[in-house]
Amino acid sequence: MGTILGGRGMRGGWILAVLSLLILAWLVLNDLVDDWGRLEGGMDNLVIFVEESMWPPNWSVLEAQSYPVCENDIELFCSVGYLGMMETIKIAFVSTMLGFIGALCLSSLAARNLVPLYVALPFRFILAAARSLPSLIWAILFVIIIGFGPLAGVLAMTFYTVGYLGKLQYEAFEGMPSDCLEVSRAMGLSHPSTVVSVVIPETGNHLLSQLMFMFEYNVRHGTVIGIVGAGGIGYYITTYLKFLQYDKVLALLIIIFFVVVIIDLLSLMIRSFVTDEGDVRRPTWLRGMIKLWKKRRASTDAE
């Protein structure tokens, strides 16, 4: 009996469950869509749109704008692509850092293994509330409250970051080994001391990884909040969309893609310094650079 349930019978049950869910999904979709005829010719439309409007990307977004007059020797630094991307990165950086600190304060009061349930619940509620509004809605709210510009973007992303990172952080805290917390409790360390000296160092790798993920997320979402006037590269994307300059939009999207890839590489590099050896492998070029740097330092010391 046990073999049947744990073996083929169990597998059959799983297959049946997945199939039933797929059929249910199809039925719901069928109910939602009233005209399947719209799909007809959709692919042709896409090809025409890409060929005629988007491709090739218009790299003039990396040339200096005609106004204001560029005073820099390097034209790129006065271009829409560079200025927009830099503003988005700055907004993302500031809001990630502010959000990280805010989230740490709240999540240390929301983790069940650090505080009693009656303390944790209200803080979990606050974090859930901050998270339940997408960054775009936060951006619209702040644009209404304080007007257009990067400050609205920073505040919107900070609030969202607090909610999102806060949840990830208290889950990481709750997953940490209990023995070091018990020692600090028995020794009589205060809650802030326990958080600073035990919890943060013990979960440091998770926190760093979440921080890098959030920065990358904020860079990507910085483009979206720009659309509602909260600053960054999104502002230029909306403008080009309004004027049907899809080739320029594509060029900006490619720039965003490269920046996200670079942030991903940076994240990998930073995490390789703090994780257990072999856990996150350093890229070959980084290992080469570290070796070279050590060699140079050794030769300087010898001199």
């Binding site: 023995d179 018990e182 020692v183 020794m187 009589g188 035990v198 013990e202 440091g204 790798n205």
Partner: peptide, 27 residues
């Protein structure tokens, strides 16, 4: 006034020896 060494020692694995020993002094 109360010191505790549990079976699993309760050390902060990702911190240095100095950090761990200093916790006692800090308490």
């Amino acid at each position: 006034g109360l010191g505790y060494i549990p079976q699993r020692l309760g050390l902060v694995r990702h911190a240095s020896v100095r950090h761990n020993v200093a916790l006692g002094a800090k308490a």
